[in-house]
């Protein structure tokens, strides 16, 4: 289950995008997605324009687009919802290939497809070009409450340990003849969850005590070794949202 480990999402590289500090990339992605979502769906040309900076990031970061596209498939359930909308929505109908479709429904479907796709690609690119430490340092620099940053830190660090443990417990169960196939056979799974929680919590206690003995005082020295973003880096990061905002303004004025 290595797919569950956040580090597996990071694609190591040494491109200008990889080198940007985490805080710059987080802010850039959030502003970009907000701009995309705020654009009315009827500005079709604007959405074509929004794809350009994302494509540019893929090129500059020298990433293989195929694995990224596979990751972007996570939005498929919502594309299915989008397919249903033209049939279910009210409003004036249009005829298309013998189907009677709702016009507002078609716009709504386009709205979801365009915005969800751009949003997913922005997030996929962020995760692929930013390692976990840089992301955590970024959150900390952006004044995210320390307690949240620390919870994320521990979570990210231990989630693969727990998944491995769950996997081992599952193998142990199956090799003893368990064959859970129906909801009413779920007792063993749930008992496993209980055991997993106990192990997780007790591991937390152990880790905490180990950290105390190494001088932990309630603050993590996360990011001390990474320099904060410089103006030049903020400017480089601003290119993504700035392009999007320019496109949005041009589209709504025109």
């Amino acid at each position: 289950m290595t797919a569950g480990h956040p580090d597996a999402l990071y694609v190591p590289g040494d491109s200008p995008v990889h080198r940007l500090p985490g805080e710059v990339k987080i802010v850039a992605v959030v502003l970009y997605v907000v701009t995309v979502v705020a654009t009315p769906a009827t500005e079709v040309a604007a959405f074509a324009g929004y794809a350009a900076p994302v494509a540019a990031v893929v090129i500059v970061s020298r990433l293989d687009p195929l694995p990224l596209a596979r990751r972007a498939l996570i939005e498929v359930p919502f594309l299915l919802l989008a397919v249903l909308l033209p049939f279910l929505s009210t409003g004036p109908r249009v005829e298309w290939l013998g189907l009677t479709l709702s016009e507002p429904g078609l716009w709504a479907a386009w709205n979801i497809v365009a915005k969800a796709t751009l949003g997913v690609w922005a997030a996929v690119l962020l995760a692929a070009t930013t390692d976990v430490t840089s992301l955590l340092t970024g959150l900390q620099r952006l004044r995210c409450p320390t307690v949240i940053v620390q919870i994320v830190t521990f979570m990210v660090r231990y989630v693969h340990v727990l998944l491995d443990e769950a996997h081992r417990m599952r193998i142990a169960r199956l090799s003893r003849g368990d064959d859970p196939r129906f909801l009413w056979q779920v007792r063993a799974t749930a008992a496993g969850f209980g055991a997993l929680f106990l192990r997780a919590f007790e591991r937390g206690e152990r880790v905490y005590v180990a950290m105390l003995s190494r001088g932990y005082t309630g603050r993590m020295p996360v990011g001390a070794e990474r320099p904060a973003a410089r103006v030049r880096e903020w400017a480089a990061g601003a290119l993504l949202p700035a392009t999007a905002v320019t496109i949005a303004v041009t589209a709504t004025v025109a």
């Binding site: 289950m1 727990l162 997993l196 997780a200 880790v207």
Partner: peptide, 18 residues
């Protein structure tokens, strides 16, 4: 100071969702 426990709980929820 007991944040490690909360972090492990979050990891647990994350794992359980997967």
């Amino acid at each position: 100071r007991l944040v490690p426990m909360a972090g492990l709980t979050a990891a647990f929820i994350f794992a359980v969702q997967m």
